[in-house]
C-alpha cells in the first residue's frame, strides 16, 4: 500500500540531510512501529510522508498504491486517505473542531467525487466518535486545541483519525507526554481502527505504546537510516538495551 524507496530528505533550502536512504514497505492491514533515539529522523519521516513543506525530498520516492506522492500537496495526500497524527497539534483560534472536521471530510469527499455528508449525518458520526474516543465534549465547543492539555490534544488527534477514517494512519510520537489513561485511550483508538484495509505507521521513542498496540513490524531508525527491522520482539530488545549500541555503530 505504502512504499518508500531510497528516500532522502533535507530541511528545505538547506543542505542539512536528515533522511539518508530509507526503504520501507507497509502492506494493507499492517502496523509498523518506527523507533529511534532523539534526532534520528523519526518525526521528519512522518512529516515527509505527509508532505510538510519544511522538508524537501532530494532523492528516492514514496508511492501509494504504486503512484508517486512526492509532488503532492498535503491536502492531496489526505484525499488519498493518508493521515498524520501530529506530535504538537496547532491551536487554531475561532475554529471549532466540528467545523474543521466537516470541512476536512467535505474536501476529501469532494476530491474523490463522493457526495458530501449532510450536516445531520456528519453530526451523528461526530458525536459517536467523540464518545468512542472519550474526549470531553465540552472541549468541542472551544476553538481547535486552544487551551487543551497535552493529553486532550492527543485525544483530539485520535478523534480526527476516527472521523476521517484514513487508509494510512501515521502517528508521530502520539504517546509522548501522556499519562497512562491517555496512553490507553490512544491505544484503544488504534486497536479499534485496525482493519485489513488500514495500515498504521507508529513513530515512537519509547516502547510503552507498543505494550498496548502490538506491531507487526518494528524498525529501528538511527541517523536517518533504518538499521534493523524485526517483529514485536525487537521493540522489547530496544527497551532492554536502549539505542546505545546502534548509535555507536552508526
Amino acid at each position: 500500500m505504502l512504499k518508500i524507496e531510497n528516500l532522502h530528505a533535507a530541511v528545505t533550502d538547506s543542505d542539512e540531510e536528515i533522511l539518508k536512504g530509507i526503504d520501507l514497505e507497509v502492506n494493507a492491514g499492517e502496523v509498523h512501529a518506527i523507533m529511534g533515539p532523539n534526532g534520528s529522523g523519526k518525526s521528519t519521516l512522518a512529516s515527509v510522508l505527509m508532505g510538510k513543506p519544511t522538508y524537501t525530498v532530494t532523492e528516492g520516492d514514496i508511492t501509494v498504491d504504486g503512484d508517486s506522492i512526492v509532488e503532492m500537496m498535503p491536502d492531496e495526500r489526505a484525499h488519498l486517505g493518508m493521515f498524520l497524527a501530529m506530535q504538537y497539534p496547532s491551536e487554531v483560534p475561532g475554529v471549532r473542531p466540528w467545523q474543521f472536521l466537516k470541512a476536512a471530510r467535505d474536501a476529501r469527499d469532494g476530491a474523490n467525487g463522493e457526495k458530501k455528508m449532510s450536516v445531520r449525518a456528519f453530526s451523528k458520526l461526530f458525536d459517536e466518535k467523540v464518545e468512542e474516543v472519550g474526549i470531553n465534549p465540552d472541549l468541542m465547543r472551544r476553538s481547535l486545541n486552544e487551551g487543551f492539555s497535552g493529553g486532550e490534544k492527543k485525544r483530539n488527534e485520535m478523534l480526527q483519525m476516527a472521523v476521517l477514517e484514513p487508509r494510512i494512519a501515521i502517528m508521530d510520537e502520539t504517546d509522548s507526554g501522556l499519562d497512562i489513561d491517555a496512553l490507553q485511550a490512544v491505544a484503544d483508538g488504534v486497536n479499534q481502527m485496525r482493519s485489513p484495509s488500514r495500515s498504521f505507521v507508529i513513530v515512537t521513542h519509547y516502547q510503552r505504546l507498543l505494550h498496548y498496540v502490538r506491531p507487526d513490524v518494528v524498525h529501528v531508525l538511527v541517523n536517518g537510516r533504518i538499521v534493523e527491522t524485526g517483529n514485536a520482539k525487537l521493540a522489547e530488545k530496544v527497551e532492554a538495551t536502549g539505542y546505545r549500541d546502534y548509535v555507536a555503530v552508526n
Partner: peptide
C-alpha cells in the same frame, strides 16, 4: 504549522488560510 495542520486533513491551502483568518476574526 497551522496551515500544514489544516492541509494535512485535506483542506486546500486557500481554504485553510480562509479558515484561519475568519476564525481569528470570529
Amino acid at each position: 504549522e497551522q496551515l500544514f495542520y489544516l492541509m494535512s486533513r485535506g483542506i486546500s491551502e486557500e481554504d485553510a488560510h480562509h479558515m484561519i483568518i475568519t476564525g481569528w476574526s470570529r
